[in-house]
C-alpha cells in the first residue's frame, strides 16, 4: 500500500500487523526489521528508521510486540558478525513472526518470492494477504492468484471482522 513509508507510517504498519497477529493468536509477536545494512553504509534511511522504531518501543509509543536485534536476516540468525557455516544448520526459531520491509519494492518481491523458484526453494510456501487499517478488512487478491488462495484470503478477512466485532475495534 505504501510505496516508501516514512518512520511514522512504519509505526502504523507495525501496529496494524501486530493487531492482525493478535487476532491469529500470537501474543507479543517478534518483529524483525529488514534493511540493507551490510557493513558498507551506516547512514541508510532504513537503518535510521529502525533505531527510531526501537526507541518508539522503549518509550511505549509502540506496544504489543518485540523488535528483534539486528538489521538483516543474517543478523537475526548469526548475530552481528557471524557467518553461515553450513546451510543445513539454520535455526528457524530465530526467524521473526513479522518482517517489516523498508519499501514496497522489496515488500512486493518478498510477498511473491516463492514464484521465483516454487519447485526448488520455496515449495510448500503459501502467500496470503489482507489490507488492514482501512476500517474494515479489505481483500485485494492479485490477478495472478489461484482460486484457493483467494478463498483463504477471504477467510482471513472473516476472522478479523469477527475478532474486531468481539473487541469493538475497527480493523
Amino acid at each position: 500500500m505504501a510505496i516508501a513509508p516514512d518512520f511514522q507510517s512504519k509505526i502504523e504498519i507495525i501496529r496494524n500487523t501486530v493487531d492482525l497477529f493478535s487476532h491469529l493468536g500470537y501474543d507479543n509477536p517478534r518483529v524483525g526489521v529488514l534493511t540493507a545494512e551490510r557493513g558498507l553504509n551506516p547512514e541508510l534511511d532504513s537503518v535510521r528508521d529502525t533505531v527510531k522504531i526501537k526507541e518508539a518501543l522503549a518509550n511505549g509509543e509502540l506496544k504489543g510486540c518485540s523488535i528483534e536485534d539486528g538489521l538483516s536476516i543474517s543478523d537475526f540468525l548469526f548475530g552481528r558478525d557471524g557467518f553461515l557455516e553450513e546451510s543445513d544448520k539454520i535455526d528457524f526459531s530465530l526467524i521473526p513472526d513479522i518482517f517489516l520491509v523498508h519499501n514496497v519494492e522489496f515488500g512486493n518481491i518478498f510477498s511473491k518470492i516463492d514464484s521465483l523458484s516454487a519447485e526448488d526453494y520455496f515449495s510448500g510456501w503459501e502467500r496470503h494477504g489482507i489490507i488492514t487499517g482501512a476500517g474494515i478488512p479489505t481483500v485485494v487478491p492479485s490477478r495472478a492468484d489461484k482460486h484457493n488462495t483467494i478463498v483463504t484470503d477471504i477467510a482471513l478477512g472473516v476472522l478479523i471482522a469477527r475478532e474486531e466485532e468481539a473487541t469493538g475495534n475497527d480493523a
Binding site: L34, T35, A36, R38, S46, S72, I73, S74, L77, L84, S87, I90, I95, V101, H102, N103, E105, F106, I109, F110, I113, L116, S117, D120, Y121, F122
Partner: peptide, 15 residues
C-alpha cells in the same frame, strides 16, 4: 533494499 534482502531470503529462508 530489495537486492540485498532478496538474496538473503533466497539463501536463508529458501536454502
Amino acid at each position: 533494499e530489495s537486492g540485498f534482502s532478496t538474496v538473503e531470503v533466497f539463501t536463508f529462508l529458501g536454502g
